Simulated assay, not measured.
Amino acid sequence: MKFYIIATLFFFITGTTTENIKGSVAFNKNTLEKIVPKFKAVLIKFDESYPYGEKQDVFKKVTEACLSQLEILTGEVHISDYGEKDNADLGEIYSVKKEDFPVYKLFLNGNIHDPLTYTGNTKSVEGIKQFMVENSGLWFGLPGCLEKYDKIILDFFTSDRSIVLNQAREIKKELSKEEKVSAAFYIKIMEKIIEKGDEFIEIELKRLKKLSEGKLSEAKKQQLENRVSILTSFKLNKPKEKVEL
């Protein structure tokens, strides 16, 4: 079914963008209303008619990262303030101002009325991806994360945590030097959760995000982004508590 939907959108994805960005849709009011409800998550960048430069390159990288996740779609709304004022109606509907371009909005579960607005750095690929992962619950791989460890996180929460922790330590022995850096952080998180409880995840996420707002070297900034990504994986894979009625 999803393949059929994507096939029917081929014209929009490949033929209507100002610049041909693979996997991206150029939206107007009609196409937005028809296409957005068909996906669990749609990230739309509201921007000028002919976007260019570093921020446009960031959008391309975000779109490329989303190609493997069929529940996510990315697109652009090009707004013109002259001539026929293309898509000015969408700018008004979603309260997007020219001076704020580019503005990213995330539409979830087919809801076209109340998208979430990204308030982070529009030059940060990882920041935008993090925003999508945290709010959509969908996973398409973030920097610093390791597939082998992501696969055992659910087991960590649903079975004997000490056994899974030992399993994580064994997996680390087989990894490359670079992978062991991330593996060590997965293991540290497991140890802290066992020691302090599940609430450690949110507390540590807030702490690291606050640290990342400071003046940091590129290496330190990347390290923090990787750690936030790994913590996000724990957050997404943690079973939601059932509410008794």
Rank of each mutant, 00 (worst) to 15 (best):
Met1Asp: 13
Phe3Glu: 15
Ile6Trp: 14
Leu9Ile: 05
Phe11Glu: 12
Ile13Gln: 15
Ile13Asn: 11
Gly15Cys: 11
Gly23Ala: 00
Ala26Gly: 08
Ala26Cys: 12
Phe27Cys: 00
Asn28Gln: 05
Leu32Ser: 02
Ile35Pro: 15
Pro37Ile: 01
Ala41Tyr: 10
Val42Cys: 04
Phe46Tyr: 05
Glu54His: 12
Glu54Trp: 06
Asp57Val: 07
Asp57Thr: 09
Val58Leu: 04
Val58Lys: 00
Phe59Asn: 02
Phe59Arg: 01
Lys61Thr: 14
Val62Trp: 07
Glu64Thr: 14
Thr74Val: 06
Thr74Ile: 03
Thr74Gln: 03
Gly75Tyr: 08
His78Gln: 11
Ser80Gly: 07
Ala88Asp: 09
Asp89Glu: 13
Lys97Val: 09
Lys97Gly: 07
Glu99Tyr: 10
Phe101Val: 00
Leu106Met: 02
Leu106Asn: 02
Leu108Gly: 02
Leu108Lys: 00
Asn111His: 06
Asn111Glu: 06
Ile112Ala: 01
His113Ala: 12
Asp114Ala: 12
Tyr118Trp: 04
Tyr118Lys: 02
Gly120Ala: 02
Asn121Val: 04
Thr122His: 13
Val125Met: 04
Glu126Val: 15
Phe140His: 08
Gly141Leu: 01
Glu147Tyr: 08
Lys151Glu: 14
Leu154Asn: 11
Leu154Lys: 13
Phe156Gln: 02
Arg161Gly: 15
Ser162Leu: 12
Gln167Arg: 13
Ala168Asn: 05
Lys173Gly: 05
Ser176Lys: 06
Ser176His: 08
Lys177Glu: 14
Lys177His: 11
Lys188Phe: 13
Lys188Asp: 14
Glu191Pro: 09
Ile194Glu: 07
Ile194Met: 08
Lys196Thr: 09
Gly197Asn: 04
Ile201Met: 04
Ile201Gln: 06
Ile201Asp: 10
Lys206Thr: 14
Arg207Leu: 12
Arg207Ile: 09
Leu208Cys: 07
Lys209Ile: 11
Lys209Trp: 05
Glu213Val: 01
Gly214Cys: 06
Leu216Trp: 09
Ser217Cys: 09
Lys220Glu: 15
Lys221Arg: 15
Lys221Val: 09
Gln222Tyr: 10
Leu224Pro: 14
Glu225Tyr: 09
Asn226Ser: 06
Ser229Ala: 03
Ile230Arg: 00
Ile230Asp: 01
Ile230Val: 04
Thr232Met: 04
Leu236Gly: 06
Asn237Met: 09
Pro239Cys: 00
Lys242Gly: 10
